[in-house]
């Protein structure tokens, strides 16, 4: 099986999909949430491309539904974290924590700092 890495943006997307929760997360809501948390606007092309890659890697599960008039009757693609997606996030977090704690003389960040 191909090695699956999480890029920085991919990790962010995964996290946000998890935050929004199933039956809510599709392209537009994910884009909006990312903008909300990071304060930057997101390229919709980059987002769709990342979602496609994450789906191919098996980190996201999808189902179609929720067509509206605005969308010209086209269905939405809803995303939710798969088990391996959750595992990948946990792995990434643990790796980060381990490395973080190995840095000498690191003053812990205050959580209220943004």
């Amino acid at each position: 099986m191909r090695r699956t890495n999480l890029g920085e943006f991919e990790e962010l997307v995964l996290l946000v999909v998890g935050v929004i929760g199933p039956d809510m997360a599709y392209g537009i809501t994910i884009k909006d949430e990312i903008s909300k948390y990071t304060g930057r606007s997101t390229s919709v092309g980059a987002l769709h491309s990342a979602l496609y890659r994450l789906e191919m890697k098996g980190f996201l599960e999808t189902h179609m539904g929720g067509a509206t008039n605005e969308r010209g009757g086209r269905r939405k693609k809803y995303y939710k974290l798969s088990a391996s997606g959750k595992a990948a996030l946990t792995n990434a977090k643990e790796l980060r924590n381990t490395l973080y704690e190995m840095i000498p003389n690191m003053i812990p960040l205050k959580s209220n700092e943004k």
Binding site: Y52, K76, K77
Partner: peptide, 15 residues
């Protein structure tokens, strides 16, 4: 197969 939801999303953004 990819087109439907992407196009839908883009139409939504357009609106």
């Amino acid at each position: 197969p990819l087109l439907e939801h992407i196009q839908g999303d883009l139409h939504e953004l357009y609106h």
